[in-house]
Amino acid sequence: MIRPYTVDDVDYIVDSHYELYHQEFHYDLTFKEFIQERVNGFVSRDSQEENIWVIDIHGARKGSISINKVDSETAQLGLFLVDPKLRGEGYGQRLIETAIHFCERTNYKRIMLVTNQELRGARVIYKKQGFKLIEEWSGLHSNKEMIEERWILELV
């Protein structure tokens, strides 16, 4: 089941992102701080135009995705994670669809996201859902040089 987050999910969202990205991509603690700031922002704003959803399988949290407001026409997708044991079972696609449907109901005209080239599996799902790569640049994050990307999905 995919459900909206509660404050009880905050530690899971932060810890699961850090643990997975540290293990798979060697991200450092600055990534955990970044995720903590993002999640704290959602909690403090408590906006009807933003949300985080969690994959919940019999009470066990197994992934997440978020939408936050950039401006009145643009939402940003983030906090996208699926437990590695569930990859290939369609949960990533369902999370993205949940976020897109929320944006359509909230009358956003586009969804943007920022990712990096290392996240190959997520990039495949973004492309399949109609997101278009519009920009690339180099950046230093988590003590790593990365090729970052901005993707856009036009909803109108």
Rank of each mutant, 00 (worst) to 15 (best):
L119A: 06
T106A: 15
H58Q: 15
I13L: 01
I111Y: 02
G63D: 09
V14D: 01
N107Q: 13
R87H: 09
E154C: 07
D8F: 10
V39R: 00
P4Q: 10
L140P: 00
N143E: 10
R110Q: 15
T30W: 02
F42P: 01
A99F: 02
Y27W: 13
I111H: 02
D15M: 05
Q129G: 01
R105Y: 00
D56Q: 12
I147G: 01
D15Y: 05
P84Y: 07
N143I: 00
Q129A: 15
R150M: 09
R38K: 09
A75L: 03
V54Y: 12
K127W: 02
E136K: 14
D8Q: 11
E19H: 12
R3M: 13
K32N: 00
I125C: 08
H22E: 05
E89W: 04
Y126I: 05
R45E: 09
R120D: 14
I2Y: 11
G78N: 03
L29W: 04
E73M: 10
T115E: 06
E33H: 04
R123E: 12
R105C: 08
E37F: 03
L86W: 07
K144Q: 09
K32Y: 06
K69R: 14
E149R: 04
I65T: 10
I125L: 14
L81S: 04
S44L: 11
L113C: 05
E19A: 08
D15R: 03
E154G: 12
G121K: 05
L29E: 14
L86E: 13
L95R: 03
S66E: 06
I65V: 15
K109D: 11
Y12W: 06
R123M: 13
N143C: 01
F34I: 00
L20E: 15
I96C: 13
G121H: 05
E154R: 08
E148I: 00
G139A: 13
H101A: 09
N116D: 15
E24N: 10
I13W: 11
V54G: 09
D71Y: 07
I65Y: 03
Y91T: 06
Y21W: 14
I52A: 07
E37P: 00
S44E: 13
N40D: 12
I55C: 11
D28T: 01
T98F: 03
I13K: 02
E104A: 01
S47C: 13
L20A: 09
I65M: 10
L113V: 03
V82R: 06
R120V: 15
R110C: 09
Q117L: 15
S44A: 13
I96A: 11
M146Q: 12
I2P: 10
R38V: 12
D9K: 04
V10I: 04
F31S: 01
F42L: 10
M112S: 06
Y108V: 06
Y91E: 10
I100N: 03
G88I: 09
S138L: 13
I65S: 12
P4L: 14
V124K: 12
V124M: 09
Q117D: 14
A99E: 04
T98G: 06
R38S: 07
T106P: 02
L29H: 09
S138R: 13
V70A: 10
D15P: 01
F42H: 15
E154A: 07
T6C: 08
L77R: 00
F25R: 07
E24H: 13
V10R: 06
G121D: 12
K62R: 14
G41P: 02
A99M: 05
I100D: 05
V10K: 09
I147W: 08
V10L: 01
D11V: 07
